[in-house]
Amino acid sequence: MMRTMLIARRELAAWLRTFQGYIIIAMVLAVDGLLFNAFALGGVSKRSSEVLSLFFQFSSGTTMVASVFISMRLLAEERQAGTLLLLYSSPVKDHEIVLGKFLSALAFLALMTLATVFMPLLVMVHGKLSLGHIAAGYLGLLLLGSASLAIGTFGSALARNQVLAAVLSGCMLVALLTCWLLARITEQPLSDVFSALALWNQHFQPFQAGVVHVRDIVYYLSVTYVALFAATRVLEARRWR
């Protein structure tokens, strides 16, 4: 665990020292703010909870896109730069490398998500909102981000460079997102399986509305675990090549 935290700290420090991290945060804030102003606050008058729900809906999209950009560098960049050999030749287990990298990305995503908190606070100042709704929405964003980052970490472990990692992760995320479409054109029980697998449709919408179901938490944590496990196995196989 000590080595996991060591790798996570170094990686997070690298995020905060380079422009890449700040550019991602700035882009997410800009897009979130634009959508918040144009669609959540604009148009016909809405109740505060509806505005907040829309905000979490937009944010879930930017969180997934940001996750692809955050995670693409985790292992692919190290492989490109040759620094993965430093970790490979050190007494560090593969799962410690993967977990360290993932935790740094999650911490960075949490910082980025925290930076958007002024938008719900604005709604809260001018309307009536439950803190529970805000907390549930942010928990959903973090869990969705965690699953997306884990998928991205898997893509980064598979790819030889960052662009390929982003493409792979993006494809896997879109495949999971569009499972609900498959659910609509298939018969039961297959439609139930696809519906349960869908990354956003069935599992994020309750968080967005301020409702926390254990099954949704379990789903996101399961996706995170499976993707990180797969990334670890890829790293194990690649370590000896």
Partner: peptide, 21 residues
């Protein structure tokens, strides 16, 4: 090719490697 993290300082990098090992 030396495996170095360019954004780190020399001493900081060596301390990281020492702890890692």
């Amino acid at each position: 090719t030396p495996p170095l993290y360019d954004e780190m300082g020399v001493g900081e990098f060596l301390a990281f490697v020492a702890r890692l090992r």
